[in-house]
Design a protein around this nucleic acid. Structure first.
Lengths: 128, 128
DNA sequence: CTTGACGTTTACGTTAACGTAAGTTGAAGG
DNA sequence: CCTTCAACTTACGTTAACGTAAACGTCAAG
């Protein structure tokens, strides 16, 4: 009666375009913690979100253990002041890293744009 | 008499913060092709630029063989029309990939920003 | 009742990107 | 001449992120 859908491992794998092995591996690494029905894994909505975050991290080129700590930051309990300061520090660190990446991307995009101009010029000259 | 400086492997490694092994490995993989003085590697300015491109690609999380093809695109000779069209196609493909990455970065940055807000709020509450 | 479809665990294999010796060489300095 | 330094090659070791095979459980359909 609660609208909480669940998913099988195959459904999730299919939806996100990964293999069953990958999902099991992520659980083994502590990136996912699906419920169980006997031995079968049951994935709830939160598990789907986490898998999405993991794959986004992968597209960004982060290793799995870093992804784990980053995701871990999201659902850390408030805790004490020292913990909070440490967490803020981590957040700042990650942000700097990501902004460096964006600069790298922009530089590469600009290189590609110039390459494209040269290509089009050559094409014009040849097919003129 | 020509202002063309050259560098030893150690100088380049030091400048870019990588090991000698890494540079030799990149040559072995065809990412760099330094000149030689006997057995010693002599790096010219173009080699420096290429190393910079390789490391930028690494920061973006690309595997070395993809980096190789991407860099290869930059210094491809004009060639024939078919080649040019193929190259343009590749450029488009890479651009799409990079733009996806930028979206991922922006999404992550936004997540981090919200996390930071929550942290600061908790800190304010605790430290008054 | 057996055949599939779908799931499970255990465990060894694989690739990428280097790390890390081990042994060699050429030029320079004392 | 001997050593030291900076480079070299060859080759095996290592870690991450799964792939892949083997062997088994379970439940619905024919």
């Amino acid at each position: 009666m609660d609208g909480e859908r669940t998913w099988s491992i195959a459904e999730l794998a299919d939806e996100f375009g990964v293999t069953l092995r990958t999902i099991r591996f992520y659980e083994e690494q502590g990136l996912l913690t699906p419920a169980r029905n006997g031995t079968r894994r049951i994935f709830a909505d939160g598990d789907r979100v986490r898998l999405g975050l993991v794959l986004r991290g992968k597209r960004l080129g982060f290793p799995l253990d870093e992804i784990k700590t980053i995701i871990g930051m999201y659902d850390a309990e408030p805790g004490e002041v020292g913990q909070l300061r440490y967490l803020l520090d981590q957040v700042e660190h990650r942000r700097a890293e990501l902004e460096q990446r964006r600069r790298d991307i922009d530089a590469t995009l600009s290189d590609l744009a110039e390459l494209e101009r040269r290509c089009r010029a050559d094409l014009d000259r040849l097919t003129g």
